[in-house]
Design a protein around this nucleic acid. Sequence first.
DNA 1: TCAATAATTGCACTCAGTGCAAAAATTGAT
DNA 2: ATCAATTTTTGCACTGAGTGCAATTATTGA
Lengths: 196, 196
Amino acid sequence: MNDAPKPEGLRERKRRETSHRIAAAGLNAFLAKGYDATTLDEIAAAAGISRRTFFHYFKSKDEVLLASLSNYASMVKAMILAEPPSGSAIDIARGALLNLAGSFHASEMMATAKLMRESKTLRSRTHAGYLQLEQAIFDGLSELRPDEARNSLRLVSLVAVVALRLAVETWQQQQARHPLAEYVQDAFERLKAEIR
Amino acid sequence: MNDAPKPEGLRERKRRETSHRIAAAGLNAFLAKGYDATTLDEIAAAAGISRRTFFHYFKSKDEVLLASLSNYASMVKAMILAEPPSGSAIDIARGALLNLAGSFHASEMMATAKLMRESKTLRSRTHAGYLQLEQAIFDGLSELRPDEARNSLRLVSLVAVVALRLAVETWQQQQARHPLAEYVQDAFERLKAEIR
DNA sequence: TCAATAATTGCACTCAGTGCAAAAATTGAT
DNA sequence: ATCAATTTTTGCACTGAGTGCAATTATTGA
């Protein structure tokens, strides 16, 4: 058993680099000119590849933006599995999201959030991100609690994401005055207080 | 004050008819060949108009499908305003959604739901519909309860839509064995039981 | 150095969506 | 019925996203 039987060949390294270059060029252009006004040709040119090659790295234009976002889905699953398995499902989800909230970078978030609001297609995508998150939380909880009713875990997943959305909303409204985690904490508490 | 100062001129009537013809032709084609495989040319041809004219009636392809869906948003707002204004915000939302659930037609829903699952763009749109619903519920509640904290009403709106989504999910999983309203009722109860 | 494999590219294509200006239909008035 | 104003419909040409294919180029292991 070797940790790295392939010491990262040239191919893999270049691939990673190119992918990263495209993502960076894309985000850059989006922030500079707006999402819709940025064409694939521009991104490709800025990344030093052909338009056709772009599609070997990303399935679509919006996936460039979703790429960074979708990391959160796998992160949250890992965090759920890392939670102490005692406590209710919702507490586990809350713990994981609190954890996740810590890894949000305020400045970066506020910038991309602005993009999300501007473009119609991106608004849909933002939400697609939340759907991924729901799924990831559900997967994590299912793995951690194989004996609990799927029904309940599904419910908890959706509610947890609602809490996160509420938190992000007020966080953005208040220009990130406090760390996101505080808003997440607050959202969960308000959720428990309000639903009865 | 006249109810119909313009007794519906020929123009307006034709416009309504054409709009309806397009929607019907679109839904028809979608169900027959799938969403992605249906082109605007086909829809236009089936509706007896030019491709260009299509865009005078619908802003985009998916709006043909969203048209029927987005009615629900205004319906739910009306239903909220029609609820007895006593009781908590969440009970009002639940009442309205129970009411709305009654107007869902099972067979039609199951068919369009299949479409929604097939196409990526449509999945986004489905969710856009839920966002509209959230907003509509929030608007309705805000109007009915101008003195309650927006925070709380927003929270209740999102939670209510989560309940609806959970209900629709199991409803579809169980092939509409029971009327949707029952699942909605159940979802709200589970919500209250699970969150604490 | 060579052959297998994978990445890059160009080209031609389909389809959604938009701007523009001409042609056809509807309207209200005479 | 006729006419001018207004609205609707249409055709045409265009941009931009995304795909299939086949040729070219780079990387790999031997």
